[in-house]
Amino acid sequence: MLEILGFAVGLLVGLTGIGGGALMTPLLILFGISPKIAVGTDLAYAFSVKSFSAAVHKRGDNFDFRLFRFTALPGVFGIIAGHIFFSRGLIDEGMITITLAAVLLVSSLLMLYTSKTSRIKTECFICDKYCESFHDNSLKVYILIPVGFIVGLLVQITSVGGGTLLTFAVLNLTNLKPNRVVGTDLATSTLFSAVALISHGSLGNVDLGLATQLIPAGLVGSLIGYYLSKRCSPGFLRMAITASIGFASLVIIASKI
């Protein structure tokens, strides 16, 4: 059953680029896995599938190093802060579950909003407004520093947030082309997953047996999803995943009431 779960989530990641941690962590919790173990094990799964999917897709020039440097460092500090909270026992499993539900609900709403506004921005590729590389001479882009920190902290606590939340902030605070935003964010979220995985591994929150059941099937699923993405439009599936993430958040909230 776990192999099927790993394959299905990997397939969605390869097909649409979204849905990894936002689906895997709540599903593991609903399967009865401890929230701490679910977060740590999902980070191992997310890092493996995301890095493999990125290599398969070969995003090439869809990467902006200045943006990566601007958001990655604060995010790593956020992960370190989360590690300190975990190591000192300041975060319990109830807090993980509630925070996860809140992040999933916000992520699903932002995904709905971004799916509507990104089409407008994509149509402006020929405009000068959207053809510049990332630059940090505008005061509003400095909001990305605390955003990066918060996203890193959330990744450490819930394993979710490195994709949707950071992408939404960059799309709305910079004039960088959406394809370069997505490519850079994939690299950043992969880094966050790696650092948070090391942290949770040191805390004993990674179930290696569970991870070995999920990861191989997830890699196969992401590869098949990549080839399927060439033959179909993932738009409808993205909306279905968004609805599923929102539903998962409500199920988790209901279980705690």
Score class of each variant (00 low, 15 high):
Ala72Gln: 10
Leu73His: 12
Leu73Pro: 10
Gly75Phe: 07
Gly75Thr: 04
Phe77His: 06
Gly78Tyr: 11
Gly78Phe: 13
Gly78Lys: 13
Ile79Tyr: 03
Ile80Met: 13
Gly82Arg: 08
Gly82Asn: 02
Gly82Glu: 01
His83Arg: 14
Phe85Thr: 12
Gly89His: 02
Gly89Thr: 00
Leu90Ala: 11
Leu90Met: 15
Ile91Thr: 07
Glu93Ser: 06
Glu93Met: 01
Glu93Gln: 09
Gly94Ile: 04
Gly94Pro: 00
Met95Asn: 12
Met95His: 11
Met95Gly: 10
Thr97Asp: 03
Thr97His: 05
Thr97Leu: 10
Thr97Phe: 02
Thr99Lys: 04
Thr99Leu: 02
Ala101Pro: 02
Ala101Arg: 03
Ala102Arg: 00
Ala102Trp: 02
Val103Asp: 03
Leu104Glu: 03
Leu104Asp: 03
Leu105His: 09
Leu105Met: 14
Val106Ile: 08
Val106Asp: 00
Ser107Ile: 00
Ser108Trp: 06
Leu109His: 05
Leu109Gly: 14
Leu109Ile: 15
Leu110Gln: 02
Leu110Arg: 00
Met111Lys: 07
Leu112Phe: 15
Tyr113Asn: 01
Tyr113Phe: 13
Thr114Val: 10
Lys116Cys: 09
Lys116Ser: 12
Thr117Tyr: 00
Thr117Ala: 07
Thr117Gln: 04
Arg119Met: 11
Arg119His: 07
Lys121Ala: 11
Thr122Trp: 15
Glu123Arg: 14
Phe125Asp: 02
Ile126Tyr: 10
Cys127Gln: 02
Cys127Arg: 00
Lys129Met: 09
Tyr130Arg: 10
Cys131Asp: 15
Glu132Arg: 13
Glu132Asn: 10
Glu132Gln: 09
Glu132Gly: 08
Phe134Gly: 11
Phe134Pro: 10
Phe134Asp: 10
Asp136Gly: 01
Asp136Leu: 06
Asp136Pro: 02
Asn137Gly: 13
Ser138Val: 13
Ser138Leu: 14
Leu139Asp: 10
Leu139Gln: 07
Lys140Phe: 05
Lys140Gln: 04
Val141Ala: 03
Val141Trp: 08
Tyr142Ala: 06
Ile143Ala: 15
Ile143Arg: 12
Leu144Phe: 06
Ile145Asp: 11
Pro146Tyr: 04
Val147Thr: 04
Val147Cys: 07
Val147Asp: 07
Val147Trp: 07
Gly148Arg: 13
Ile150Ala: 14
Ile150Gly: 09
Val151Gly: 11
Gly152Tyr: 05
Gly152Leu: 06
Gly152Met: 08
Leu153Tyr: 09
Leu153Gln: 09
Leu153Glu: 11
Leu153Ile: 11
Gln156Phe: 13
Gln156Gly: 14
Ile157Gly: 06
Thr158Ser: 09
Thr158Asn: 04
Thr158Val: 01
Thr158His: 04
Thr158Glu: 00
Ser159Trp: 03
Val160Ile: 08
Val160Cys: 02
Gly161Ala: 07
Gly161Val: 13
Gly161Trp: 07
Gly161Phe: 07
Gly161Lys: 08
Gly162Asn: 05
Gly162Leu: 02
Gly163Leu: 01
Thr164Trp: 02
Leu166Ser: 12
Leu166Arg: 14
Leu166Asp: 09
Leu166Pro: 12
Thr167Lys: 07
Thr167Leu: 11
Ala169Ile: 03
Ala169Asn: 03
Ala169Pro: 03
Ala169Phe: 01
Val170Arg: 07
Val170Thr: 13
Val170Ala: 12
Leu171Ile: 12
